[in-house]
Structures are given as structure tokens and as C-alpha cells.
């Protein structure tokens, strides 16, 4: 079911146009996003970094369909998926892998994997066969099939969750700091795993994070978001050739790109920090 040709047939383009999001609980008027514009090509791997609370997750939630925008539009290919007044809903064409993970703890690995297809009305046996095929293809040990998520290492949980998303053949994969809680060694392994998955599936990936090394290592392009109200401040094209492995991390080019990203983010983090201080004073 995983479509190798999404790059060729051009599925999975995300266009964010002049998006604004104002949270207004009891008139507090928090401006999370303002004049936010971004274009993600089909089959592109885009990372977004920015200081805490800058609106990255707000943008991701709007793309995912968990919340709407107050101005502007978001398109997935030709379809408007977010715009003021639009009753949008999340869909299997854009699936989120969450920070901390959202596997269903009461379901076994296999039941987690087939959940999407079964809910969408697919025959259970077919879904199981498909899940097993995908497990083999993306290197998830079949012995884990009958285990509960609570029994898996945190790295393997993420692996299951990525496969659970991919079995729905989404046009884009949205990742909200999925590896944040992992120790650095598992994190490195998951990075290489995700790169491998990307090579195999060629899905569009939009991934938000705080971790600059993670961003430069994985992305085709790193977008830097300003402090609130969030807008795209700069982009860094990562011209390190694929397929990449951990050796990339010790190259000069990597260090140089990471340095550039660091400087751009630092400026914003400083602004956010000072704004925070003023608010407290």
C-alpha cells in the first residue's frame, strides 16, 4: 500500500498561505501565528525549528485538522484543509506522530497497526496481511506483533507509530517532536530509521522540533519560525546528499549548516526570553 511514486505523481504538497491564528479565550487574544507562509513540495522532508511556544505546534495542529485558523488558507494538494469558517476534520491523508507517542496501550502492536484500515472499513485479514508486509518492509520485528506498547522500548514504540501512520498511505506525515523523550542513543537510531523510511516511501514529511542537530541531519530544508506571533523567518537548504548516515554528523558542511540554524534560532529564543522577562517584571 505504501506508494513509492508519490514524488513522481506529485501528491502531498502542503501550501500555507497568509495564515493567522488568534487564540481568544476570554478575550486574552494570543496571536500564535501571523502572516505565516510556507510551501512544502511533494516528497520533501521539511523540518521546522523555533523557540518554545512560538506556534509550531499550532501550525501543525491546523494542518492536521485538530484546530482551525483565523485567517488565510492551508491546502493539501488542491484541497483546502483549513480556512476561517471551514468545518475541517482530521483525515487519514495526513497523520500525526505525536510527542510522547499515541499508541493505544490496550491494543497489541498488530491491533494498533490495523486500527486505521479496519476503522476505514477494510477487511481485517487483508489489513493484517498488509500490516505484516509493511512490518517486514520497514524492519519491525514480527515477534512484537502480540506485545502491548507498554512492553516495547521507547524507540520501538515510535517505530510502531510511524508504521501505524504509513499503513493508511497518507499523503503527508506530520511529526510533532516524536523523539523528544528518547535518550540520545535511541534518538540517533530513530533518526537513521526515519531516513530509511523516507528513502523507501518518499512521503512528504513535516517535522517540528527544538533540536537543531536533528533538523539539519534529517531535512531537505530547515524552516526557522520567529517567536510569537509565529511566522517563517528564514530557511536553510540542506544540500547534504542522501542517503545520509551518522557519518554526516562529523562533516564540515553539517557543522556549518547547524551553526547557521543555531544563529537564526538563537536570536528568536533571545527575543522570547526577554519578552518573558518583561512579562514577569
Amino acid at each position: 500500500m505504501v506508494n513509492n511514486g508519490s514524488k513522481q505523481n506529485g501528491e502531498g504538497r502542503i501550501s500555507v498561505r497568509d495564515v493567522e491564528k488568534v487564540y481568544d479565550p476570554e478575550g486574552v487574544n494570543v496571536r500564535a501565528l501571523e502572516e505565516c507562509n510556507m510551501e512544502i513540495e511533494p516528497g520533501e522532508f521539511v523540518m521546522m525549528v523555533g523557540p518554545s511556544g512560538c506556534g509550531k505546534t499550532t501550525l501543525l495542529n491546523a494542518i492536521a485538522g485538530f484546530s482551525n485558523v483565523t485567517k488565510g488558507t492551508i491546502l493539501l494538494d488542491e484541497n483546502v484543509i483549513a480556512a476561517p469558517g471551514l468545518t475541517q476534520a482530521p483525515g487519514a491523508d495526513r497523520i500525526v506522530v505525536f510527542q510522547g507517542g499515541a499508541l493505544f496501550p490496550w491494543k497489541t502492536v498488530l491491533d494498533n497497526l490495523i486500527f486505521g484500515p479496519v476503522v476505514q472499513g477494510k477487511n481485517k485479514d487483508e489489513a493484517v496481511a498488509e500490516a505484516r508486509k509493511l512490518m517486514d518492509k520497514l524492519g519491525l520485528n514480527r515477534n512484537t506483533e502480540d506485545m502491548y506498547p507498554g512492553n516495547l522500548s521507547s524507540g520501538m514504540k515510535r517505530q510502531v507509530e510511524i508504521i501505524r501512520a504509513l499503513i493508511n498511505n497518507p499523503k503527508v506525515l506530520l511529526l510533532d517532536e516524536p523523539f523528544r523523550a528518547l535518550d540520545s542513543l535511541s534518538k540517533n537510531l530513530m533518526h537513521e530509521y526515519l531516513l530509511e523510511v523516507f528513502e523507501i516511501t518518499k512521503k512528504t514529511i513535516f517535522f517540528i522540533t527544538h533540536d537543531l542537530e536533528e533538523a539539519v541531519f534529517l531535512a531537505d530544508r530547515v524552516l526557522i519560525m520567529t517567536t510569537r506571533p509565529g511566522t517563517i523567518k528564514a530557511e536553510i537548504k540542506v544540500d547534504i546528499p542522501r542517503p545520509r548516515n551518522y557519518k554526516v554528523l562529523s562533516t564540515d558542511r553539517f557543522a556549518e549548516l547547524k551553526e547557521r540554524a543555531f544563529e537564526a534560532v538563537r536570536e528568536e529564543a533571545l527575543k522570547a526570553f526577554e519578552a518573558g522577562e518583561r512579562e514577569l517584571a
Binding site: 492536521a64 476534520a89 482530521p90 500525526v96 505525536f98 507517542g101 499515541a102 493505544f104 490496550w106 486505521g116
Partner: peptide
């Protein structure tokens, strides 16, 4: 995150209650 994930997979309101909310 659990109901959100289920929503992405396309679950309906009844399914949400029986398959996600109550087990959780």
C-alpha cells in the same frame, strides 16, 4: 492525543466512545 489519533484514522463518534474513550 489518543482521540486525536483515532480521528485521523477516520473513526466515528460511536466508535470513539467504545473503542477509544472507554478502554482508555
Amino acid at each position: 492525543r489518543l482521540p486525536r489519533a483515532a480521528m485521523s484514522f477516520g473513526i466515528n463518534r460511536m466508535g470513539m466512545l467504545w473503542k477509544i474513550i472507554l478502554p482508555a
